[in-house]
Simulated assay, not measured.
Amino acid sequence: MLHRRFILALTTSLVLGTAGAAEGIVLKPAQLEGLGIRTTPAGEGLAATAGQLPARVLVPVDQMRIVASPMSGRVESLSVAEGMAVKAGQEVAALSSPDALQLQREAMQAASEAALAQSAYVRDQKLYKEGLIPEARLQASRAAAAQAGALSRERSQVLSLSGAKRGRAAGSLVLVAPIDGVVLEKMVEVGERVDASAPVFRIARLSPLWLEIQVPLATADRLKPDARVDVPGVGVSGRVIGVGHAVDPVTQTVMVRAEVTDNAEALRPGQMVSAAIADTAGGGIDIAASALSHEGGRTLVFVRTEGAGGEVSFEAREVKVLEVSGTTASVQGVQAGEPVAVSGVSGLKALLTGVGAQ
C-alpha cells in the first residue's frame, strides 16, 4: 500500500504511443532510486552474441605428435627449430647411441648368417639333384636358410624402427618427423644426454584448431549442434563440436569445444581469445527473467535511454520470449549491451498502465 502511494506521488511524464499505451517513462534521479530500479546490459554474463566468452586455443589431439628418442644416447645435431615447418619423414635430429651401435652390429651379423644359410641351401639343392646327399639334409638346410632369413629381416626392421640406419656412422640414430606440421617445442639441446623414450620435439598440424570456450550453464544448455563460432577481429570462424557435462564450481560455466577452420592460422596454440557463439536459442539475447513484464497479452521489457536535464527515460519495448531457463530468459527485441531494468519493474509497469498519471 505504501509502495502504491509512493508511485501515485511521483511527478512522472508519460509519452503515449499511437495505440494509447505508454511507450516512454521519464523519471527524476530521486524517483529512480525510490522505485529501486536497477539495470544490467542485455546479454551481460552470457555475452554469446557480444563475443566476450573466454576461450583457449588448442591443437586437436589427433594432430599432435611427440618425437622421442627410442633409446638412450647423446644429441649430436638438431636439424629444425621451434616454429619451422617440417614434412613427414624429414630428419629432425641425430643421436649417437651405444644401443644403436649394438642394433647395427646385430643386424649385420644376422644378414651375414642369412646369406651363409642361403648359400648352403643352394649348394645342397645341387648335391641333392646329383644324388650325393639325402633329402633330410636338403630339408634341414632349407629350414636353416628360412630361419636365418626371418631373423635377418626382424633385426633389420628393429634397426629401421629405431632410426638407426645402415650406411651411417656406427651408433648413429636418426629421428624423423612423423607428420607434416610445425615444430611447437624443442625439448633438448645439442650435446645433451637423453634416456629412452625422452621427448625431443613436439610437432603439430595447425589447421584446423580447437577452441575451449567457457560458456555459462544457461547458454550451454541451449546451444544448437554445429552452432557457428567466431573470434571477432581476426576473421576466424568454425562450429561447436562438443559441449561438456561438468560445471566449474567456481565460475558456473561449462566447457564448450569448437573446431575452427576458416583462417585458423591466425591463432596460436595456447592463446587466450574472446569467442562469439551464434544460433543459441534461435539467436536470442539473454536477460534476467525478472526483467519481463506482461501487459495486455504482450511481454515487455523496460530499456533505459538517456533523458534531458538529468532525467532518465525508460522505453517499454515488446519482446518475443524464446525460452526461460531458471533465472534467465532468451528474448528477441533487444540488442546486446542495451541497459534493461531487472528490478523495480513492477513500479515501471504501474506507471506504464497509468497508475502514476492519476
Rank of each mutant, 00 (worst) to 15 (best):
Ala336Met: 06
Gly131His: 14
Val190Phe: 05
Pro232His: 13
Lys129Arg: 14
Ala94Tyr: 00
Leu132Arg: 14
Ala50Phe: 08
Ala169Tyr: 10
Ala110Gln: 12
Ala196Pro: 00
Ile287Thr: 06
Ala291Tyr: 11
Glu323Thr: 04
Thr18Lys: 13
Ala94Ile: 01
Leu58Pro: 05
Gly34Ala: 07
Val340Lys: 11
Ser156Gln: 12
Leu78Gly: 04
Asp279His: 11
Arg166Lys: 05
Ile7Pro: 05
Thr253Glu: 04
Ala140Cys: 02
Ala114Thr: 01
Met272Thr: 13
Met64His: 14
Lys165His: 07
Arg317Gly: 05
Gly171Lys: 02
Ile277Pro: 06
Ala281Lys: 04
Gly51Lys: 03
Val273Asn: 03
Val301Asn: 01
Ala107Pro: 15
Pro232Ala: 09
Gly51Trp: 03
Ala145Thr: 09
Asp286Gln: 12
Leu53Ile: 10
Ala19Lys: 06
Val273Thr: 00
Leu116Gln: 00
Ile25Asn: 05
Ser325Lys: 02
Gly238Trp: 03
Asn263Gln: 15
Gly163Asp: 05
Ala9Tyr: 00
Glu185Cys: 01
Ser207Gln: 15
Asp230Val: 12
Glu311Val: 08
Ala94Thr: 00
Trp210Arg: 05
Thr305Trp: 06
Ala177Tyr: 06
Gly307Ala: 05
Val355Lys: 01
Ile133His: 15
Ala164Asn: 06
Val312Gln: 04
Ala143Glu: 10
Val59Ser: 11
Glu338Trp: 02
Ala146Gln: 11
Gly270Met: 01
Glu44Asp: 04
Tyr128Thr: 06
Val194Glu: 14
Lys28Arg: 09
Ser13Ala: 01
Glu338Leu: 03
Ile277Cys: 10
Leu2Ile: 10
Pro178Asp: 07
Gly310His: 05
Arg105Phe: 10
Arg268Gly: 14
Arg155Glu: 11
Pro178Leu: 12
Lys126Pro: 04
Ala30Ser: 13
Glu338Gln: 02
Ala281Leu: 07
Gln214Ala: 13
Leu300Gly: 00
Gly20Ala: 07
Leu35Ile: 00
Thr18Cys: 11
Ser346Gly: 04
His245Trp: 04
Leu58Glu: 15
Ala117Tyr: 14
Glu154Gln: 03
Gln358Leu: 02
Leu161Met: 07
Val80Cys: 08
Gln63Cys: 12
Val256Asn: 15
Arg105Ser: 12
Ala68Pro: 08
Leu95Tyr: 11
Glu113Met: 01
Gly233Phe: 06
Gly191Leu: 03
Leu184Arg: 02
Ala19Pro: 12
Ser112Glu: 09
Tyr121Glu: 14
Glu91Cys: 05
Val321Cys: 02
